[in-house]
Design a protein around this nucleic acid. Sequence first.
DNA 1: TAGTCTTTTTATCATTTGATAAGTGCGGGG
DNA 2: CCCCGCACTTATCAAATGATAAAAAGACTA
Lengths: 194, 194
Amino acid sequence: MNRIEQAKVVNFLDFAASLTKLEDEAKEALTSKLHTKQYDKGELILETGTVCNQIYFVESGLLKTFFYTDTREFIMRFFSEGNMFTVLDSFLTRQPSTYAVLALEPTHITYLNYADLDQLCARYHSMETFFRKLLSMAALNMMDRIGNTLEEKAQVAYHRFLKEHGKLLQRISLADLASYLGITQVSLSRIRSL
Amino acid sequence: MNRIEQAKVVNFLDFAASLTKLEDEAKEALTSKLHTKQYDKGELILETGTVCNQIYFVESGLLKTFFYTDTREFIMRFFSEGNMFTVLDSFLTRQPSTYAVLALEPTHITYLNYADLDQLCARYHSMETFFRKLLSMAALNMMDRIGNTLEEKAQVAYHRFLKEHGKLLQRISLADLASYLGITQVSLSRIRSL
DNA sequence: TAGTCTTTTTATCATTTGATAAGTGCGGGG
DNA sequence: CCCCGCACTTATCAAATGATAAAAAGACTA
């Protein structure tokens, strides 16, 4: 470990700046467009069927993005403090979302509206670069997930999750983890007992 | 159908311009950096373990991006004429790729080197916008794939593929389709016979 | 502490998929 | 024309997972 600690990213602006150098003017413009909101545990941040108009930064807390079929729920991803998220398809296409977002813990978020981000990207090249890098990160995450999902049996997927996101496990229910892995809660319990 | 036919996108430049207005200077700069190459059926376009240094546009032909485990092969995606692709993780992170790319048909591609794209993005805001939109499309595709993979049994996945990419089926082997769906070729054969 | 609700585990059975092997059909080269 | 290789199908059995129900373990409240 290095003696000089990496400063922890604690807000939207720091996060953006950690991906790209933002000139002062862009920083100010961005800051002026940010809003914050607080959600209770169990509260819906976004409902299925509504257009996702914001891109979010999680200041603190934990949430899941998920969707339903007739009988089961599936989780796309968990997001905890220090991460940005949105319901990407709805946000980009401006269509109603099939995904919902729910706070799993009391959650404090900062957000930026679609129209504002669009304007900022048009006005500041550096903001466009930020957004491109953000999309790159999202794409890489999803690519990994596809590869893993194709390749792995549930048992392997569970152990991988333990290794990569072990800390999160103490904050989410096994039911949610099962939904994330694409199996039933009962199956997960079975796997854990082996 | 509309009487006025949508002009078919036939090259890299048209493709880029279809996503964003590019000013003439950017167009020229981009054009000057493009290269083309021809691959035979069965030829490797990118080997596992090498860094993917290019972003590609498929002028004609068909290819697969895929990876191996000990015993099986899994296909991330097929790309046919009119589409852009790269091995995203390797291209963005500059790390050796776990994926390989192989031509399933005689394939003609145009490509752009990483360093050149990087420079173009830095110099021209419009090129950065183009790249951002390209990443958006990639991310949306992958998001859909994750959702579908989580949700669907193989049988449903097969029928969805038929509906959405039925035409492709006439150009790919059932073995490759099975790899794409994450099942064995024998399982696919079984499903088809129901 | 008892009672109630939620989460997790265990058990049973049906279905899906994988592994393996053998069979079928088709096309190209000798 | 025959043989061989390749793609695909069919058959059999084992392993993994889903659906359902019930039991056990925790957590919270009165």
